[in-house]
């Protein structure tokens, strides 16, 4: 018997009688907190920062002020050729992105309860981008904020993406004596611009 058939047969024999699947009722989680305030607090708790801006077009200017030293930049926004110092078409392997200083991308879901932001294949020209960049900037519409993870998955239902990530704050570790260090393998900083 193949291992597949063997494992499936053993599960079938050994599993308990079928139990019902519970329904997820959302009203028990309602805490009446302010969406925008909660999101901001949670992004900051996770080590990121939140800015509010009038328009998407202003973000590049703000970012240049935030990171004046940055040399290698890329943005997925339209009309940012002046800001972009790399041409993704010319990048042959993801390894050539090693020196990327600042990346600006857009997100379509933000979660207030934990500050998580959704990025997927449709929003990222390459999957490695938000991880390999030194500084990550994400633009998010206030209308795209939801309260809990449950609503976030309701929004994502039916989305057929090859890869997606909920990202909360910059990369971090506390593996040395429980001391929090920001900047493990991924981005060293996260800035979220709410439009």
């Amino acid at each position: 018997m193949s291992s597949r058939a063997d494992i499936l047969a053993r599960v079938k024999t050994n599993k308990p009688k079928l139990l019902n699947i519970p329904n997820i009722a959302l009203d028990v989680f309602e805490d009446g907190r302010d969406l925008l305030k909660e999101f901001t607090v949670k992004v900051e708790t996770a080590g990121g920062q939140v800015f509010e801006t009038q328009s998407k077009d202003l973000v590049v200017g703000e970012v240049q002020k935030l990171f004046p030293e940055a040399k290698v930049n890329f943005s997925t926004l339209e009309n940012t050729e002046d800001f972009n110092t790399i041409n993704l078409e010319a990048i042959k392997t993801p390894h050539d992105l090693e020196d990327l200083d600042v990346l600006i991308v857009e997100s379509n879901v933000g979660v207030a309860e934990n500050g998580a932001i959704w990025l997927n294949d449709a929003l990222l020209p390459m999957r490695i981008l938000p991880f390999i960049t030194k500084h990550l900037v994400v633009i998010l519409k206030k209308d795209d904020l939801v309260t809990f993870m449950h609503q976030a998955y309701q929004k994502l239902n039916g989305e057929d993406t090859g890869f997606g990530v909920f990202l909360s704050g910059p990369s971090k570790t506390a593996d040395i004596e429980q001391s929090l260090v920001i900047g493990a393998h991924g981005a060293l900083s996260l800035s979220v611009f709410l439009v």
């Binding site: 996770a46 309860e113 991880f131 909920f166």
Partner: peptide, 11 residues
């Protein structure tokens, strides 16, 4: 933590 920094969904 309210969620891990990266919850990566591979499909």
């Amino acid at each position: 933590q309210h969620i891990t920094t990266y919850s990566s969904h591979f499909r």
